[in-house]
């Protein structure tokens, strides 16, 4: 099967029901996308499929055929730069395990919404669990990233 991940094309030989998460991690060795629940409950595995945030732990790889997968390793600079800068400034992570999923979810929000309100953040981010409960900082970092993104464009 032909897959496009972070702009690179890969030929993978996997069963079509294998979730995208395990193709990315076990076959392509991209370890930034995490496994938290395997049941679309926590968002640790969030990647972008043709620009949409998806739960890669339940999305079979067959869904990605002919489409573009983007993982944390390939997030474009327009979104990655303000997000990374904001996450750094606010010092968001604790254990860090959920954070790449949080950032990938926040990236979709930020791309579509230049001025996310607290309510927008609740709506966009409540699918992503942080067991360390860094939510308050994630919220702050998203507001800051929105500012940074505006001022750089």
């Amino acid at each position: 099967m032909q897959l496009t991940v972070n702009g690179k094309s890969y030929d993978v030989n996997v069963p079509s029901d294998m979730p995208i998460l395990w193709v990315i991690r076990d076959k392509l060795g991209l370890m930034g996308t995490k496994f938290g629940c395997g049941a679309a409950q926590c968002g640790a595995c969030t990647v972008h499929l043709d620009g949409q945030g998806i739960r890669s732990c339940v999305a079979p790889v067959s869904r990605a055929e002919g489409k573009e997968i983007v993982t944390i390793e390939g997030l474009n600079d327009t979104l990655s730069k303000p997000l990374m800068a904001a996450w750094t400034e606010i010092d968001v992570p604790q254990c860090g395990y959920c954070q790449t999923g949080q950032i990938m979810a926040a990236a979709v929000l930020l791309r579509d919404n230049n001025n996310p309100t607290d309510q927008d953040i609740d709506n966009a981010m409540s699918g992503n669990i942080c067991r360390c409960a860094t939510y308050q900082r994630i919220r702050k970092a998203i507001h800051l990233a929105a500012e940074l993104k505006k001022s750089s464009s």
Binding site: G32, M84, T88, G96
Partner: peptide, 8 residues
């Protein structure tokens, strides 16, 4: 440890 944790 922030950088490596946010970059994955």
């Amino acid at each position: 440890d922030t950088q490596e944790k946010i970059k994955g």
